[in-house]
Design a protein around this nucleic acid. Structure first.
Lengths: 208, 208
DNA sequence: GTCTATATCCTGATAGAC
DNA sequence: GTCTATCAGGATATAGAC
């Protein structure tokens, strides 16, 4: 972001190392409880290097969020979920959500835990946080519109997406108390099918 | 907790004032981002008074959580939800959950936001936090067992309660982005009915 | 780009008069 | 129980040699 134009290999590697440790620590302890000294000690680079790369603690946070967002969103499959019928496509969708949830735990924790920062963080941080949430919601909305074949009824896909995102957020919260908690795709499947049916979308309520 | 046995009216009032302020600030900014100085400035009492009453910042946190827990749990109605059929009882249950959610926003925010404290807070704080969560889960489990008349199938009531708690947690998270977000009792109703039916509980899937 | 050293402020917590 | 005054440490952030 602030590097010289020429070959700055080591600088980039340091930048990534800082982001790695900051992501881990911030998703573990939260933004406020993570100090620059902690990040410095954990990644081996002096605090001044962190400030050189990111300018401020807030800058670190924004960069961490941005990387988590692009990483998670690019890991999500295309919204055109394959499958002959609603049931198959829904399974594909839930599989993608579950896998993303399982493989990017930091991302979700960051999204939730660092939401506690009304006054603490900058406008840039809040904006980045919102962009993160909006990205997830948009993906879920588009994918669910495809799954239930309701691209002509955006309000239905939107409602289903919100429900899915809340279930995922609630599961992330549950993980603080029980680290083994998983997404419970089966319940979510039943709930989404019922919600779609309740809104007049033609679906088969059983599995076979 | 540490007061003298005699008449200590003013002490109790100060204690409550400190707890009020700490609850507000901690549910707004989170535990780590809330300093004793902030609480002191906001409630008007010197920092040393806070330490006299609660011993440490951690003690303040534990007391805040404990009061929020007893306050919220005692505000919940008895689990014997009245109603002739499942649909009526479910509406009563969801009404109680929605009202508690609406009238005790601090409690839910505390429960969630302060969960980010793996190493930051003490064992006592973690225990109190867990007690809070367990209390909510137990109430939801018992009430749902009554609603769906499945007191003989505790695993069903447990699963429905977990689903409800996750939906509520997810909604609290959604509130950080959209303060107007409400519990969406209608969706939760549809989902719970479908989940119960999916587990073999006899329910009418429509409203009437 | 990375290091050492440092400035400034604020934190949690205590001492002791009243 | 409440106040003023204060400590020791850690926080964010910067200066400047290399």
């Amino acid at each position: 972001m602030t590097e010289a134009p020429a070959h700055a290999h080591r600088g980039m590697r340091s930048r990534d190392a800082i982001l790695d440790t900051a992501t881990e620590l911030m998703s573990l302890h939260g933004y406020a409880a993570t100090s620059i000294s902690m990040v410095s000690a954990a990644c081996g680079l002096p605090a001044s290097s962190i400030y050189w790369h990111f300018g401020s603690k807030d800058g670190v946070y924004v960069a961490v969020l941005e990387r988590a967002r692009t990483s998670l969103l690019s890991a999500l499959p295309p919204v055109e979920v394959p499958g002959a019928d609603v049931s198959q496509r829904l399974d594909g969708f839930l599989g993608a959500v579950g896998e993303a949830f399982q493989r990017h735990p930091d991302g979700v924790k960051l999204l939730i835990g660092l939401g506690m920062l009304q006054r603490t963080a900058s406008a840039a941080a809040v904006a980045e946080l919102r962009r993160y949430r909006d990205g997830l919601l948009a993906w879920a909305r588009d994918a669910l519109g495809f799954v239930f074949d309701v691209r002509d009824r955006p309000e239905v896909a939107e409602a289903l997406a919100r429900f899915t995102l809340r279930a995922a957020s609630g599961t992330a919260v549950a993980r603080w108390f029980d680290p083994a908690a998983s997404l419970d795709a089966e319940s979510l499947r039943v709930a989404l099918l019922a919600l779609a049916a309740h809104r007049g979308v033609p679906v088969v309520t059983g599995r076979g």
